[in-house]
Design a protein around this nucleic acid. Sequence first.
DNA 1: CTCAATTTGTTCGTATGTATG
DNA 2: ACATACATACGAACAAATTGA
Lengths: 256, 256
Amino acid sequence: MKKLTTVYDRSRVPLYVQVASVMRQRIETGHWVEGDKISTLEELESEFGVARVTIRQAIELLRGEGLLDAQQGRGTFVSGKPMHNRWLNLANDFDKVVASIKDNVIKRVHIEENVAAPELDPHEGQAADAYTFLRSIQYNRGEPFSAVNLYLAKEIFDRDRKRFTNAAALPMLVEMKDVTIAHAFQTLTIGVADPETAEHLKIGLGEPTADCRLVLLDDKGVALYVADIHYRKDCFALRVDLLENVKSKDRSKISA
Amino acid sequence: MKKLTTVYDRSRVPLYVQVASVMRQRIETGHWVEGDKISTLEELESEFGVARVTIRQAIELLRGEGLLDAQQGRGTFVSGKPMHNRWLNLANDFDKVVASIKDNVIKRVHIEENVAAPELDPHEGQAADAYTFLRSIQYNRGEPFSAVNLYLAKEIFDRDRKRFTNAAALPMLVEMKDVTIAHAFQTLTIGVADPETAEHLKIGLGEPTADCRLVLLDDKGVALYVADIHYRKDCFALRVDLLENVKSKDRSKISA
DNA sequence: CTCAATTTGTTCGTATGTATG
DNA sequence: ACATACATACGAACAAATTGA
């Protein structure tokens, strides 16, 4: 009883769900490998400081996901890995971002014209006169992996309403000869899914997402393109070689 | 009852916690601004599709966090913002990473010599002969914001055991004249806190974290430094101007 | 083959939390 | 605030399957 209330001080998520999350991560990261026999119930009890039944509930949860297989008298075994959709590599140079978006399969789920300007941080430039709001879902192999809420300057949208309605906006914007993109601010944080996003990405309400905001400014500092992108956490990764810009490498090593 | 089981299909987190998560995010992102009167209970009921009491539980949870203030007969008001510790900007060029780590206050919580090599992906190079394992917590204004699990090649550690025990390892490694860092692979994903990490970061078990793996290879492709860093999600952000490397900017605009 | 040790599976009672209407 | 139903969590005892001596 004391345990129970103590635990709930930090997180009101059911204990067995918390335990299952940790176990799932261990499988995902390769700490527990497929075929391995994991610790006994008693060991897990004392490791997590919870009752036997709670451990069993967690195991049952993962059994339903095909990750664990408990066998009476023998032990509990790792029986699979979660689908690692970690194929998505968020690019961190502009060309790659544009290129990766170009090939995406998207579905527009909502368009609204003449909406209020999005809220912009001071460093994110000035708002344009008017915006069009476009919401789309991006798919890979039929599975949704990101939801995009885009504020596109009305002036840009009106240049080719039809194409902007049906295709990814960013490549089209970049191709416009008379538009100069002076800055492309990208901010990545961890957020949670609101009801709409959860529905579109087929995840639970309040589950974590990787939230990426992309703001494109023209040479006058006007925000032409303001996108809030919510990625499913399980298909998100960002991989970089910090030394791929040779200047950094040289500087750090030559000066040392 | 039908609603209940339907909702639980996707996430076994208590409904009112899910609802509270979404509300918290709305305040955090500025969608709901301090002083605002939020929707009435009835509107919220129908928006989330849950019972009145469930909404009130969510509000009560946020009231405890100082974010909402419900006043009988008047409505419910936003009374504060969550502490936005989003001061942490994960750097994405090597020099900045080194510089930012240099000033951190760290606390070593564990050191173990001659540990097994960390698991490395194929692209993450070859393991060194032996490693020393160091775990440390990084603090800002007395609050923990990240937990670091570092595998440092024994050969490197032994060069200055004392300093490596007490200070951040990365800057020291970079300063070694006869060590060449050929690659610095950084991978960022979203993970969950295991019991130890949760304890150190003072968050709930299974809560999401920003997980950053940093692998430094020497010119022979040996992994000298393998760090798994878990950031509290609420003090994590990654901000980049994708056009700061001029080459990208020029290419995309001149070719168009 | 039997026995004992190990390990998962099941059940009971109790208390509290969650969600509806 | 109440009545109702179900979920979560504990601890402990007992049952059933597997393994190896």
